[in-house]
Design a protein around this nucleic acid. Sequence first.
DNA 1: CCGTAAAGCTAATACTATTAGCTTTACGGG
DNA 2: CCCGTAAAGCTAATAGTATTAGCTTTACGG
Lengths: 188, 188
Amino acid sequence: MPRAGLTPQTVVREAAVLADEVGHDRLTLAALAARLGVALPSLYKHVKGIDALYQKLSALATAEVAAELTRAAAGRAGGDALRAVAAAFRSYARRHPGRYPATQRAPDPADPEHLAAGEQAVGAIYAILRGYGLSGDAAVDATRMFRAAVHGFIALEAAGGFGLPRDVDRSFDQLVAGLDTAYRNWRS
Amino acid sequence: MPRAGLTPQTVVREAAVLADEVGHDRLTLAALAARLGVALPSLYKHVKGIDALYQKLSALATAEVAAELTRAAAGRAGGDALRAVAAAFRSYARRHPGRYPATQRAPDPADPEHLAAGEQAVGAIYAILRGYGLSGDAAVDATRMFRAAVHGFIALEAAGGFGLPRDVDRSFDQLVAGLDTAYRNWRS
DNA sequence: CCGTAAAGCTAATACTATTAGCTTTACGGG
DNA sequence: CCCGTAAAGCTAATAGTATTAGCTTTACGG
């Protein structure tokens, strides 16, 4: 029997694929091991346990989100940048329903790459707000508002929390428009 | 041995207390049964299973939230009402960290009380927006923005997603102020 | 006061993660 | 070329989760 040749990286990457397929909460070591053609306990040679796996998945997803937000913001400013980054955020969450929730887990302070990815993602938003003349505490507050509004919308949408027939895409556009007017008329 | 005398209601209420103590995700039938002084399978005489328990917990928490939002809105209008209801929302989430996440689960269409509680909670927000001159589709979008922003803030706060030292209470005040200006300058 | 329905129990099944300890593979140095 | 060793895989065992089946006992109403 040839060896599977796993590494921590391949395990985490396959976990990400699996999570997107079956959902973040139904990601299980048993299913992951089966997917990788290996017995369940063998995974422990590459990952400390399921909690550590979630943490690494969080780092992976955060890095991906940061990259996409940065790319969406490139070459844009003001309301254009705001709309593009918000859309990229929601797009990632919809394309990766298993990875996205992992993003919410706070980084392990001992994982510099994870911390850096988080800072890059926040930085992409922060940069947009400079275009609105916001900096210092105001920019921090405005960044938190952006993250709260966009993440909250994604979470409610995923949970089926929008019962009424009103089109959800249009509500999202209105949300981003609302952020734009809030930022243009910010009073600290 | 006297009988414990459980009912579906007492089981769900104790589940709510337990969830607030140990966290929503660590609510377990074993711990609940121990708390109620009963063997684990006995719970199945009152609740269909853990999923149904979560659903009933969601109905309970939604009704409580709706009551508190309605109470906070009473006798207020405009920005005052907005601030009071947002504060009540966040206050409930912080006082009931186990119940609150259950709120996110969509109501079972076959549970009229749950549906009514959800509508009451949304109605409390909707009513405030009439004070801003918003109705129809605009009110739906604005309600979704309110829920998204406030829930998102609560979720990020609970997850430890706000790393910077900037005071979180003040950021929340700024979020609500931002909603106020967005609503005052709404363009549909 | 006794029959019955419900409320509780024990036992068993099928999952989950985790640890211990063994076997085997692959690879690098003599 | 071979062989020693570290890592990669395995099986077995433990402890926790939910769930179902089927039995016993309690409480209550006719």
